[in-house]
């Protein structure tokens, strides 16, 4: 539909130029970058801060800006590489080098969608809400499908240092591996604490976790 309207406007514009007349209907239709800027400005004038959800949430970082710009289109390989490189550089590791925590705590974190909404109590620790998008432990039937199933994550990949590191990195900043992924950057954006990330890593990679049974 959007395409159709756009095509009609372009055709109208050409006809207007040929006819040398004033173009109606699409005369004010601005160039693409202008629409992007105006949309951002309109968003910022249409929201109000509420509780912990302050207005700076509408300010985009470079990754968000690029992913919005290319949404619905193919991301050029060079842009994808830029995004992944920049995000890879944000990943931090615990001082003690310990990446794996307690899978039972990890399961609780994976179940909880609390946190960062203006309706949430900011004093309570946030969840990762993994089940909203992923299958994990097979006992939980209420799982979403926006992301791939993670059932058998550790078992499939092998219980190795490489698997543990990948799980940490992916949770910390998913954009480092898949530019414009739908997955939040839990470490970089401080959604989860270091210990919480360890616990979710454990849910994925601990041989005793229900995810690997």
């Amino acid at each position: 539909m959007g395409m159709k309207v756009g095509a009609r406007c372009i055709a109208g514009a050409l006809m207007a130029i040929v006819a040398g007349g004033v173009m109606h209907g699409c005369a004010s239709a601005p160039a693409e970058p202008d629409v992007t800027d105006r949309a951002a400005a309109m968003l910022k004038s249409s929201f109000k801060a509420r509780g912990q959800a302050t207005m700076d949430r509408l300010d985009q970082d470079e990754t968000q800006r690029l992913c919005s710009e290319y949404a619905g289109r193919t991301l050029p390989a060079s842009t994808a590489e830029t995004i992944e490189k920049a995000n890879l550089a944000t990943i931090r590791y615990p001082a003690d080098g310990k990446l794996v925590g307690d899978w039972k705590s990890g399961e609780k974190i994976a179940q909880s969608g609390q946190g960062f909404q203006y309706s949430d109590d900011p004093k309570k620790s946030a969840g990762a809400n993994c089940y909203a998008c992923h299958q994990l432990a097979p006992q939980e039937l209420s799982y979403g499908t926006i992301g791939p199933s993670l059932y058998g994550f550790g078992k499939r990949r092998g219980f190795t240092d490489a698997t543990r590191k990948y799980a940490w990195d992916k949770i910390y900043n998913a954009e480092a591996f898949a530019a414009c992924s739908n997955m939040p950057r839990f470490g970089q954006h401080h959604i989860l604490t270091e210990q919480q990330i360890r616990d979710v890593v454990a849910l994925l990679v601990d041989p005793a976790s229900p995810v690997n049974q």
Binding site: V35, A39, L43, L58, C67, H189
Partner: peptide, 22 residues
């Protein structure tokens, strides 16, 4: 034209990533 302009702005907003969770 006014509706058309709002349609195009709305389309941009639909794809606008932001916030703590992108």
């Amino acid at each position: 034209p006014h509706v058309h302009d709002m349609y195009r702005l709305g389309e941009k907003m639909f794809y606008y990533r932001g916030g703590t969770h992108d």
